[in-house]
Amino acid sequence: MADIVLGTTARRGGARRHWARYRAGYLFVLPAFLLYAVFMIYPLVQSIYLSFTDWNGVEATKNFVGLANYRRLFGDALLRVSLGHTLIWVVVGTIGPLVIGLLLAVLLWRRPRGFTLFRTAFFMPQVLSSVVIAIVWGWIYNPVFGILNRGLDSVGLDGLSRGWLGDPSLALYAVLVAAIWAETGFVFVVFLAGLQNVSKDLLEAATVDGANAWQRFRNVTVPQLANVVNVVTALLLIGGFSVFDVVFAMTQGGPANATEVIATYTYKEAFTQNRIGYAATLSLVITVISLVASVAFIRLRERGES
């Protein structure tokens, strides 16, 4: 309720009317805003500042080096390698859960017998921490006692068994499989929710018109899921560009940099090599990529909605 304030001058009256009108709004937003400004906005600005220095984390003065760190980005072979892996990660790590999640959601769409069991199981890996996922899958791939090689051996496919995480051409995909295993449950339940809203009348009509199962799925179901697909894709993409946890916990970027992604590279530069200035620059590379991806996604969605 707005107080009626009799100001002595117009300006003070304006300020007081302003305060009276907005007081509640200000006070409600303020605690969150302060915390956010100090621990998010300020460090973000600092990241930009640090990227123009060669600071090593210790010295009191931070030497300004201009664009030297940015120039270094272009000649950095390890950055190129890491970006390449990140790109593979984003593509495979998005498509994998999307396809498997959609398949499982469609299979359970009509809630066949055992629905709850299946749903419970498919979502379960989603509640695990990445360290647990990394240890469990590290064991699965273990050449000495891992169940993957033992399983292959026992069904006569011992030609396929190998040191999965030790082979530079396979390691990234081996880690991706673990990540997809964990992430699919999330995509699956979101699709399951999305499918509840797919119009059954339209599907009936398509059936009457003689459309087969694939045509119904492709032309009736998928378009109605477009919004859900968009959201899930965006979440997977944005998470993928900054992926760190499962890679770090499983391979630390090895063997021979075969699983190095930009986030693990940044961590090492910052916190094991003490190259804070350059690491800040690398962190901004991740930031810019994530921002571009997010903005592109928002644009795309707005266009889709209009």
Binding site: F39, M40, P43, L50, S242, S283, S290, L291
Partner: peptide, 12 residues
């Protein structure tokens, strides 16, 4: 803040 990852602010 919704769009930038933790790495953006991690170091400072």
């Amino acid at each position: 803040g919704l769009m930038v990852p933790f790495q953006s602010v991690m170091i400072p």
